[in-house]
Write a protein that binds this DNA or RNA. Structure first.
Length: 878
RNA sequence: GGGUUUUUAGCUCAGCUGGUUUAGAGCGUCUGCCUUACAAGCAGAGGGUCGGGGGUUCGAAUCCCUCAAAACCCACCA
C-alpha cells in the first residue's frame, strides 16, 4: 500500500487553492464563440450587503446549473454584479452620518453622494468576495454595478425613450409615503401587517341642530381630523337619514364640513358615518375627487403635523394620536373606544408605517408593457419552476397599475427632467441635450444655468429591470455582439418574493427593448427557514453566519446541506445536521479515493468477479447518469444530488469496491484498476457541480493531469444504455439480496461477520454464475445447489428462490416455525385479496390484460412461496 | 374578503396523466460490530394504510365533493 492520506478530508486549504487555480486559469471566463451559450445573470445583491443563508441557497443553485452546463459543452457564463439599492443604502449612510453628528439636510447633494460613494467603496463588493468562498464560478471580469457608467447611461436612455413614447408622465397622485426615508414608495414596497389598535368613536356636532345632537364617526386615526373636509354617509342607510343635507362640526378643530352621500360607505361598519380626509387616505381621496372636496395636507414629510393642521403643529403623528384622544375625551367629544385589529402598511425598507400622501411623482404606464410579458409566461415561452407561480403572475399582470418610479432620494439615478425658468420641463439624456430641447421649446433666451434638474431619483428597480440587457450593453448598443450571443439568457434563479418587483418587470423590459424574453426558465427558490419553520432573522438570532458554516463543514459540505432539502419553490428548513451529512459525504468520497489510490498494480489476469463487477457498475453508472440528467432537466436538483449520493455511497463504495477489493496487502490487476479509475473519474464529474472543491482535488490526483486541466471543463461523457445493461442490473439485485440474506442470518444468530458459512440454493440457483462473488462478499466456504433442505439450516427467500445457510444447532426450531407460519398466513391473506379481484368478472373484463396477468403472477408467486415455507416447516419438525 | 398551495413513516420529502407483489428515499431510531479506505464508519432491523368523512371506479395516496388544520399571495373596508 502506498502512503496514506489523512483519514479525514480537510477542506480549508484545498478550497482556497483550487479557487485560486480556477481564477488563474481563467476558467470562469466566457466570450462568444461557436458553441451554444448558457447564460445566467446573478440577481444583484445590495452592494453593501453581507451574505446570508438566502444568498447561499440561491447562489449554490446558480453555480450548480452553470457548472453542469459548462461540463456539457455549453459556453457557460454567469455574470455577477451588485445593486445600488437606493433606499436601503441611503438609509444606512444617513444613519451612519447621524452617529457622527452630521445631518443629511446640512449637506449638499454632492457632499452627501460623496459619503455614499465612500461607503460603497468601503463595503461594496464584500458580498461578492464571500461568494467566492462558496465556489461561485462567476466571470468576475464582468462584475457590474447598477450605478456604473454603462448601467447608468442605459437607465437614463430608457427613461428618455419611454418619456418620448408617452409612457412616462408626471402627476399628483396619492402615493405611499415613507416618513422616515422621506420618499414615495411603489405599492410593492408596502407590506401590510396586522396592527392592534383602537377604533375611536368621535362626536361631530351637527350644525344648527336644535336638540344639539352629534353624528358619531368611527375611525382608527383620530389625529387626521384636522384634515377632514367632509363627512360621508350611505344614502340608503336608514339610521343616518336625518343627517342628509346637514353640516357637521369637526371636533376640536371647529371647522364646519358638509355631509355628503355615497354608496361607498359601508352601512354596517361603525356608525355608518365616515370622516373624509382627502389628503391622507386613498379612498377619501377618491371621494374628494368625486365631490370636489378641499384637501388639507396636515403632515410634514417626516410625519409630524404641519402648519396646515392648526393644532399639535410639529408633533409626531403617533404622539398626536395619544394627545388628541385625551383632549377629545376631556372635551366630551370622544364617545368610546374599542380594541380593533386592522391592517397597516409598513415600509419594506424602513419598517415605519407608511402615510398615504398626495404628491407630485413620475409614473410609468404599464398596460402596454404588460401584454406581451403576460403572454410569454402563460404560453410557456418562459417557463416557471414551479409552475404554480404562473397564477400569481397572471393575476398581477392583469391588474397592473402604473408604476411610481420617482423616489425622493439622492442615491440613485437622477431623473433626467429639466425644469424651465418660466414653467414646463424637458426630458433629455444630459444637460447639453436638455438645453437644446429647451431652446427649441421656449421663445425666450435661456442658458444652461437656467435649467434646474429634477431633484428626485428613480426607483432602484428601474435599473434592475434592464439587468439582463444592460449587462451586455444592449440598451446603449442594441447591435452588440455580446448581446446577440448571450441574450436571451438561460435560467434565472430568484425568490418568489420579487416576482413583481423584478421578474415581471425584466420580462416587460425584455420585450420592450429586445422584442425577446430575457430568460427561458425561472427557478423560484424557497425561503430559508430554521428547522422549526421560522424565517431566519437578525432579531430571532436563528440565522447562522454562512462563512462560519463554511469554516466548520467546508463549502462543499454546506452546499450539499443546502441542496439536500431544497426542491424548487418549497421553503427549506435549514438544519446544520444537513451540513454534517454533507461533510460526512465528503469524507466518504475522500476515503474511497484513499482506498483506490492505495492499491499496487499487477499485470495478472482479471478475476471473474472483477469482470462481473466492472460490467455491472458500468451499467449502474450509465443508468444513474441518465436519471440525473432527467432530474436536472426538470430542475429537481435535490433529487439529482440524492441520486448521485446513493450511487457513490451505496453502489460504488458499499458494493462495487467491496467486490473488487483485493485481500489486504495484495495488489489489484491492471484491468480492474483502470476501469475503477474511470468510474471514479465519471463519478467525480457527476458530483462536481454540487461539490466543486473536493471533486477538483481528487480529480487532479486521480490521473496525471497537465497544467491548465480542470474537472470544471472536463466533459460529462455519453451514458447511453448498452446492450445487456438491464439484464445485469436485474441479476445483480438478486445477488445483493442473497448476500444480504446471509448477513441477516449472521446478525440474527450472532455469527461473526467473517466466520465461513455454507450456503445452498434449494432446487435451482438463479445466480450460479456469481457464486464466487457471493462467496467473497458473504464469507462463504461453500455455495452449492441441493435438492432439498436439510436439518440445521436457516432458510430465506429471494423472490421465489430459496436459500439455506447451515448453522447447525443454532437453529431455533420453534421460532422458525412460528415465523414461517406467520408468513404463510400473511401470504394467504394476500392471495385471498388477489383471488377476490380475479373472481370479479368486471375486473377481468375491464382491466388491461397486463394488469390481470400481473395479478395471476402475484398469485402463483405467492403460492410458490407458501409451498417453500410449508416445506421448511416440515423439515424443521423433521 | 378573494386566490394559490400544502396535509404520506419521529423529521424533511418523492410518489407525474388511478393498476409491476397491502406505499418509497434521506436523516434519525434500534441491534450487533473499533472487520487495516472511512466510528464523520460497517452490517442488519423496526417504523406509515397515505389529515377526517363521503363519492366515482373492476381498482384511489393518486380523480370528484365536503370538513378540518397550516402556509403564502393579493385586496382601499374607515
Amino acid at each position: 500500500m502506498k502512503e496514506l492520506l489523512s483519514a479525514k478530508y480537510c477542506p480549508d486549504e484545498i478550497e482556497a487553492r483550487w479557487y485560486e487555480y480556477w481564477l488563474n486559469q481563467g476558467l470562469f471566463k466566457s466570450k462568444p464563440d461557436n458553441r451554444k451559450p448558457y447564460t445566467i445573470v446573478i440577481p444583484p445583491p445590495n452592494v453593501t450587503g453581507v451574505l446570508h443563508m438566502g444568498h447561499m441557497l440561491n447562489n449554490t443553485i446558480q453555480d450548480i446549473l452553470v457548472r453542469r452546463a459548462r461540463m456539457k459543452g455549453l459556453n457557460a457564463l454567469w455574470v455577477p454584479g451588485t445593486d445600488h439599492a437606493s433606499i436601503a443604502t441611503e438609509a444606512k449612510v444617513v444613519n451612519k452620518l447621524a452617529q457622527q453628528g452630521i445631518a443629511k439636510k446640512d449637506l449638499t447633494r454632492e457632499e452627501f453622494l460623496g459619503h455614499v460613494w465612500d461607503w460603497t467603496k468601503e463595503h461594496g463588493g464584500i458580498i461578492l468576495k464571500q461568494l467566492r468562498k462558496l465556489g461561485a464560478s462567476c466571470d468576475w471580469d464582468r462584475t457590474a454595478f447598477t450605478m456604473d457608467e454603462v448601467r447608468s447611461e442605459s437607465v437614463i436612455k430608457v427613461f428618455c425613450d419611454l418619456y418620448d413614447k408617452g409612457l412616462i408622465y408626471r402627476g399628483v397622485r396619492m402615493v405611499n409615503w415613507d416618513p422616515k426615508a422621506k420618499t414615495a414608495l411603489s405599492d410593492e414596497e408596502v407590506i401590510y401587517k396586522e396592527h392592534n389598535g383602537k377604533l375611536y368613536y368621535l362626536r361631530y356636532k351637527v350644525e344648527g341642530d336644535a336638540e344639539g345632537r352629534y353624528a358619531v364617526v368611527a375611525t382608527t386615526r383620530p389625529e387626521t381630523i384636522m384634515g377632514d373636509t367632509a363627512m360621508c354617509i350611505n344614502p340608503n342607510d336608514p339610521k343616518n337619514q336625518w343627517l342628509k343635507g346637514k353640516k357637521v362640526i369637526v371636533p376640536l378643530v371647529g371647522r364646519v364640513i358638509p355631509v355628503i352621500e355615497d354608496e361607498y360607505v359601508d352601512i354596517e361598519f361603525g356608525t355608518g358615518c365616515l370622516k373624509v380626509t382627502p389628503a391622507h387616505d386613498v379612498n377619501d381621496y377618491m371621494l374628494g375627487e368625486k365631490y370636489g372636496l378641499e384637501t388639507i395636507d396636515i403632515f410634514n414629510d417626516d410625519g409630524t403635523l404641519s402648519e396646515a393642521a392648526g393644532l399639535y403643529v410639529g408633533q409626531d403623528r403617533f404622539d398626536v394620536r395619544k394627545a388628541i384622544e385625551k383632549d377629545l375625551d376631556a372635551a366630551g367629544l370622544l364617545e368610546k373606544t374599542e380594541d380593533y385589529v386592522n391592517k397597516v402598511g409598513f415600509s419594506e425598507r424602513t419598517n415605519v408605517p407608511i402615510e398615504p400622501k398626495l404628491s407630485m411623482q413620475w409614473f410609468l404606464k404599464m398596460e402596454s408593457l404588460a401584454k406581451p410579458a403576460l403572454e410569454a409566461v402563460m404560453n410557456d415561452d418562459i417557463k416557471f419552476y414551479p409552475a404554480k407561480y404562473k397564477n400569481t403572475y397572471k393575476y398581477w399582470m392583469e391588474n397592473i397599475k402604473d408604476w411610481c418610479i420617482s423616489r425622493q432620494l439622492w442615491w440613485g439615478h437622477r431623473i433626467p427632467a429639466y425644469y424651465l425658468p418660466k414653467g414646463g420641463f424637458v426630458v433629455a439624456e444630459n444637460a447639453e441635450e436638455a438645453l437644446k430641447k429647451a431652446k427649441a421649446k421656449v421663445d425666450y433666451p435661456i442658458e444652461a444655468k437656467d435649467l434646474r434638474q429634477d431633484e428626485d431619483c428613480l426607483d432602484t428597480w428601474f435599473s434592475s429591470w434592464l439587468w439582463p440587457i444592460s449587462l451586455f450593453d444592449g440598451i446603449r448598443n442594441p447591435e452588440s455582439e455580446e448581446l446577440k450571443y448571450y441574450y436571451p439568457t438561460s435560467d434565472l434563479v430568484t425568490g418568489p418574493d420579487i416576482i413583481f418587483f423584478w421578474v415581471a418587470r425584466m420580462i416587460m423590459a425584455g420585450y420592450q427593448y429586445q422584442g425577446k424574453m430575457p430568460f427561458r426558465n425561472v427557478y423560484f427558490t424557497g425561503i430559508v427557514r430554521d428547522k422549526l419553520g421560522r424565517k431566519m432573522s437578525k432579531q430571532l438570532g436563528n440565522s447562522p453566519d454562512p462563512l462560519d458554516l463554511i469554516a466548520q463543514y467546508g463549502a462543499d459540505g454546506v452546499r450539499m446541506g443546502m441542496m439536500l432539502s431544497a426542491p424548487a419553490g418549497n421553503d427549506i428548513l435549514f438544519d446544520e445536521a444537513l451540513c454534517e451529512q454533507g461533510r460526512n459525504f465528503n469524507n466518504k468520497i475522500w476515503n474511497a479515493f484513499r482506498l483506490v489510490k492505495g492499491w499496487e498494480i499487477v499485470d495478472s489476469e482479471q478475476p471473474e468477479t472483477c469482470k462481473q463487477a466492472v460490467r455491472w457498475f458500468g451499467a449502474k453508472l450509465r443508468a444513474t447518469c441518465n436519471e440525473v440528467e432527467d432530474l436536472m432537466s426538470k430542475y429537481r436538483l435535490s433529487e439529482a444530488l440524492m441520486a448521485v449520493y446513493k450511487l457513490f455511497w451505496d453502489e460504488f463504495s458499499s458494493w462495487y469496491l467491496e467486490m473488487i477489493k483485493p485481500e489486504y496487502g495484495k495488489p489489484i490487476d491492471r484491468a480492474t484498476l483502470e476501469a475503477t479509475l474511470q468510474f471514479f473519474d465519471e463519478l467525480l464529474k457527476q458530483l462536481h457541480p454540487f461539490m466543486p472543491f473536493i471533486t477538483e482535488e481528487l480529480w487532479q490526483n486521480l490521473y496525471e493531469r497537465k497544467e491548465g486541466e480542470s474537472i470544471m471543463i472536463a466533459q460529462i461523457g455519453d451514458s447511453s444504455e448498452q446492450a445487456g445493461d438491464k439484464a445485469i442490473l436485474d441479476e445483480m439485485e438478486i445477488v445483493k439480496q442473497v448476500i444480504s440474506g446471509v448477513r441477516m442470518v449472521r446478525n440474527k444468530k450472532n455469527i461473526a461477520p467473517k466466520k465461513g458459512l455454507k450456503l445452498s440454493a434449494i432446487g435451482s440457483n438463479p445466480v450460479e454464475k456469481y457464486s464466487a462473488m457471493i462467496s467473497q462478499l458473504a464469507y462463504l466456504d461453500e455455495f452449492t445447489t441441493s435438492e432439498a433442505k436439510t436439518n440445521g439450516t436457516q432458510a430465506f427467500l429471494v423472490g421465489t428462490s430459496e436459500f439455506a445457510v447451515f448453522i447447525g444447532d443454532l437453529v431455533d426450531v420453534t421460532a422458525e416455525i412460528a415465523k414461517a407460519e406467520a408468513e404463510i398466513k400473511r401470504l394467504e391473506g394476500f392471495i385471498a385479496g388477489i383471488r377476490k379481484k380475479l373472481s370479479n368478472e368486471k375486473f377481468v373484463a375491464n382491466a388491461p390484460e397486463a394488469v390481470v396477468a400481473l395479478e395471476r403472477k402475484k398469485e402463483s408467486d405467492a403460492q410458490t412461496k407458501i409451498a417453500a415455507l410449508q416445506e421448511s416447516i416440515k423439515s424443521l419438525r423433521g
